[in-house]
Amino acid sequence: MLRVEDLSVAFRQHDGRLTRPLAGVSLTVASGDCAGLIGGSGAGKSLIAEALTGTLPRNAELSGRIGVSGRIALAPQAVTALDPLARAGTQIARMARLAGRRADPAALMARLGLPEAALRAYPHELSGGMAKRVLIATALATGAGTLIADEPTLGLDPGAADRIMALLAGLAAEGTGVLIISHDLPRLVATTTRVTVLREGRPVETVPAAAFPEGLTHPFTRALWDAQTWTATEWAEAC
């Protein structure tokens, strides 16, 4: 269970002025729930992930309330978050040890649809989709009740992106609270129960996934949806 109320992040700049790239964000992710978070580039999506996992830069000032029951884990956006010099299985076991648990990397890999051989692979030997799965596996190895997936489909081909989203939905169905941060609105809507929309660090609205696209009332959310679905269909026709 994760409950965020009125979350705000500010940075003190060199000249003493305060910038506030994130303000007034509230969201809830219950166990077994799959929620989405969307916004354009620079909307503060990754800042939320950093705030929730306590990895904000040192000069950041955090305010608001974050209520967590159980552990919270982050599957970061870039696959460079995997240690290039350690085998996938080693990294999963290491993450579990840091959380004071014993993980069964083989079982975790099977649960994420990864072949057993991937345990002994180094990150550079994995495909993009497999590396994303290993990242999710490292986060799950901590035994976290809440998983934040930051841009899990970034850089993947459509097939791999669909499989990752299905995997995250499956994790939620098994009881994990899942928060997916993404700019891929159609897939987000297809996977989550509701989507929180951010614009330049301020919350626009939280919309049930069922409301897309007919039930949309806010022009920003509608514009976001139109932009992405138009791109998808137009590209499909053009190719």
Partner: peptide, 13 residues
């Protein structure tokens, strides 16, 4: 300073 170290630090290292 790499993302890999940040990932480990974010989870208790």
């Amino acid at each position: 300073e790499s993302p890999a170290a940040r990932h480990l630090a974010a989870h208790g290292a």
